[in-house]
Design a protein around this nucleic acid. Structure first.
Lengths: 197, 197
DNA sequence: GTACCATCTGAGCAGTGTCAAGTTTCCCTC
DNA sequence: GAGGGAAACTTGACACTGCTCAGATGGTAC
């Protein structure tokens, strides 16, 4: 009797349980049936909230992207170059601190969150989570529009690569020491001549 | 009669078929049973050559890593800075040209090819595919050992990030035009002050 | 109060990874 | 050449998965 026929917010519950599974056992162990079981609901109930597994994973990816975006909002130095560097460090720290979330935000085999750059190569930055803040700070640093794209790509590429090497690449053994990661990220970012045009 | 009981080189055949499936339908559609079927063999035969699916995928990752390594051997400019930049461009071009292979080389959920950086942060570059050539050219550019690590990480991070953004990230729509990718990669890499210490 | 409709259930299909036990073939040794 | 052991392969089975479809349920708008 306590359990009502209608769950209330099954969609949210499924996503939350998915988050737990993700952190405990990784994306390979994510199963719709298991999530349904955890939510105390039949195996087919999730299909009333998601088109299928891919759709649920895509929703998780969007969630992750939003969290990354939020983490990037922290730094607010007056100097845009310093802010860009600080944002880069936070990007890497987020990835290392929440590897499953970071992977999910860039996992295209099931659902794709990106539509951020037009086929002509122009940035439509305001449309893309995470890119918005990058575009803003880049505009402060670089007046030339064409160079803005180059700078944004170089900066994003740099920190995304660092993050990937720590999360999925050869630097993984170092990722446990967060202080060291921060230090290495700062060093690598400092090495890049951001302000030179 | 024509078909012998023993396959001959089932391991190689399975990996080859896996390569085809990967390029045609992506890693999500990779199934051991399907590979066995394609090789004309029972569903459990692959277990005599791989511990399981994860082991097969790990072998594919190693293959991919070797191919990436080979692709990086191309450029041979006398100037080490120019060579490093050219290697970076080739890295990105490989990723964009063979996205499934590139992903596989950095896919840890099933098997992990990396042991390249000691817990102390020192490079053990000669042990790691791909890193070997990077370590060599970095040594030519940068005499200071500590700075070598920083430079190597910055350079690898940069090109790996670029590659990832083209393959799995917001720059994906641009990845179809290989000429444009090359041009953008060159611009982004040129922006990074590699030779400044 | 009744009709609607999103939500949820149950049974069932096709496909998967993996294991245990048996069969066939190759190859090395005498 | 004969014998024997090891490697390669098969059959059969189990537990699990994503997904579909027909039907039960119950809140809500009229």
């Amino acid at each position: 009797m306590a359990a009502s026929y209608h769950h209330g917010d099954l969609r949210r519950a499924l996503l939350d349980h998915a988050g737990s599974v993700l952190e405990e056992k990784g994306i390979g162990s994510l199963s719709l049936r298991d999530l349904a079981r955890r939510a105390g609901v039949s195996a087919t109930a999730p299909y009333h909230h998601f088109k299928g597994k891919a759709d649920l994973v895509a929703a998780l990816g969007t969630d992750a992207m939003e969290q990354l975006d939020a983490a990037l909002a922290g730094p607010d130095h007056a100097d845009p170059n310093a802010r860009l560097r600080a944002m880069g460090v936070e990007y890497v720290m987020f990835a290392v601190s929440h590897p499953e979330r970071f992977r999910l935000a860039f996992r295209p085999e099931m659902g794709d969150p990106f539509t951020g750059v037009g086929a002509d190569g122009a940035m439509r930055g305001d449309d893309v989570l995470g890119f918005r803040q990058l575009a803003a700070v880049v505009r402060e640093i670089e007046p030339n529009e064409e160079q803005q794209v180059a700078l944004a790509i170089a900066a994003w590429g740099m920190v995304h690569g660092l993050a990937s090497l720590f999360v999925d690449g050869p630097l993984r053994p170092l990722a446990e020491d967060l202080g060291r990661v921060r230090q290495m990220a700062e060093a690598a970012i400092a090495r890049m001549g951001l302000s030179t045009s």
